[in-house]
Nucleic acid binder design. Structure first.
Lengths: 228, 228
DNA sequence: ACAAGACTGTAACATATGTTACAATTAGGG
DNA sequence: CCCTAATTGTAACATATGTTACAGTCTTGT
């Protein structure tokens, strides 16, 4: 394995709080396999059997639901050093709940389950990290479900923009995604998203120039969180 | 603790494959607390901090999302002997993702987290069971999200009825829920559900008399799974 | 600097689902 | 067995979102 891939692997949060030597004592990198995918490649389908723990060591991966037609709901973007579907590794149904697509050129390290079991048993820190990761994913997924079910497009926009303004520390945030990608994250169509953006502008709450947003009436935007 | 509550506790799948004596050696029932709730009571809100592992020892609990208005999406029904929100116990955000409501009179056993940690470390079987439970919940939640996002009401009905027919081993299944409860499970309004049921009847695919369903054209019902 | 492709806004229209209200039926408790 | 409350079907209407199509603008690679 290349040194940068090994570094990415050891930077995985599952190994937080462990020394590199401890990790290397407990599992042999030789027994892991590396897989490479090109940008845009389909890595795995929803329903595929998942029996090894995959950790991304290069690039990033989209985890999403796909309709038989083209409809998409993006669940999350997984980046280098992140484990994939940790919860599923030990689920009674070992099937991936989402489809995985390479958003860039990607390299994945595949760790056999017995090695994971050994780490869980022999390293308390790894156990805690693993449980934290699975718990965190469940929280994310539950929140996603709540948003999909209970919020209108306008509410999603308001919540997203307020969040970005917060993160970027300004009332003039720049969208980190194209509107097209944002539509996938929200699980709505692009024209519908565009329409609602326009309405918020028409109401004088926002102004936009491409990805550059300006919050003009923050209070009304916050009010839109609860009323649409 | 009453003997029947203790029995329910030990019947929890987390203890599968362990002897009663092993369990009792590893954690002291004395350090657990019992909580009682009446039918209909609110047990906990979404967002509440969750730091002990709760196991139902009597009755059943609805885990659901609730709108600020009255809209409800039921995620699952948790029955006696089932653990609650096992994933969340170790999540970095220790907040319940759903609201818990008592569907009957309920008794809950609350196990302090340190005791759970000890069990996880010292009993491999418990660790496996715990990971299986969290994995299973994630699978369920992911599937729920997919259904909410990608299927029409008619598709949900078709899928549900075919599933029930399968479980009950007959093409004339009886709905185990009122239509009102079913609407909550689907996250739709009751009149909308009723309207789509009527349409399926009008198309000659089903007939219904209260909760008694008859599948008249199984092939068309199966086709409705993919096309609405 | 240019061309090709990606991204964006917009409009007219279609459709699924929600809202509200009311009457008919059923089921359970006293 | 009856009475009340829960459940159900239905209709007219409102609304949110999807669909399709097109034209304008921005990006990016060469």
């Amino acid at each position: 394995m290349q040194e940068d891939h090994l570094k990415a692997l050891l930077a995985c949060h599952l190994f937080d709080g462990m020394q590199r030597r401890e990790v290397e004592n407990l599992f042999s990198v030789e027994q892991c396999h590396l897989f490479y995918y090109n940008h845009g490649a389909l890595i795995a389908f929803r329903g595929d059997v998942y029996t090894n723990l995959w950790i991304i060591v290069e690039g990033s991966i989209a985890a999403e639901f796909q309709d038989f037609s083209g409809k998409v709901l993006k669940v999350e973007t997984l980046k280098s050093s992140e484990p994939i579907a940790s919860s599923i590794l030990f689920a009674p149904e070992n099937n991936l709940p989402v489809t995985l697509t390479a958003e860039t050129d990607v390299a994945i390290c595949s760790i056999p389950r017995p090695q994971v079991v050994r780490l869980l048993q022999q390293e308390e820190q790894f156990l805690i990290n693993f449980l934290q990761d699975t718990g965190h994913r469940l929280s994310l997924l539950a929140e996603k479900l709540r948003l999909v079910q209970f919020s209108t497009i306008t509410e999603k926009i308001a919540s997203y923009i307020l969040d970005q303004a917060d993160k970027q520390g300004t009332d003039s945030p720049i969208l980190p995604l194209t509107k097209e990608a944002l539509a996938e994250v929200f699980g709505v169509t692009r024209p519908s998203l565009s329409r609602d953006f326009s309405q918020l502008c028409a109401r004088g709450i926002l102004s936009q120039a491409g990805r550059q947003i300006h919050i003009l009436k923050r209070k009304e935007l916050e009010a839109a969180l609860e009323k649409g």
